[in-house]
């Protein structure tokens, strides 16, 4: 059942993105930026965590989870370290995603030749 909800919720978030492409005519960069901000706002009002509980990877794999993780890091360190935590904590949760993307992309650029 977990797979079904991951599929449905993840697919639905992608449909939102597709509608922003096709109907609102946003560029991909605008769409992704907007989705990240939406994820951040959803976490700020406390709705993203229940969505993760419900949909699992359906909520953690779309880019909205990036906004969610940034807010989560900022707020968690705001609580432990005070106001400076807002700055120091933003990347504390997302480190895995960003570091992985940078390192793997760099290695790929060393090995792979561009096609076409």
């Amino acid at each position: 059942m977990a797979y079904v909800w991951a599929f449905v919720v993840g697919g639905a978030i992608c449909v939102v993105g597709q509608l922003l492409f096709d109907v609102v005519k946003l560029t991909p960069a605008h769409t992704m930026s907007l989705l990240v901000v939406i994820g951040a706002v959803l976490d700020a009002v406390g709705w993203y965590d229940p969505l993760v509980d419900f949909a699992g990877a359906g909520a953690t794999v779309p880019i909205t989870s990036f906004g969610n993780a940034l807010v989560h890091g900022a707020l968690t360190e705001l609580q432990t370290d005070g106001w400076i935590g807002v700055i120091t904590g933003i990347f504390s949760v997302t480190s895995a995603g960003i570091s992985a993307a940078i390192v793997f992309s760099f290695l790929a650029a060393l090995v792979v030749r561009p096609k076409g």
Partner: peptide, 22 residues
């Protein structure tokens, strides 16, 4: 958007830019 919205699309944009400008 089906492949752009998941984090895989984020990685794809970084990786293809890195390869393209190598």
């Amino acid at each position: 958007a089906g492949s752009a919205v998941p984090v895989t699309g984020f990685a794809n944009s970084m990786c293809s830019a890195a390869i393209e400008h190598r």
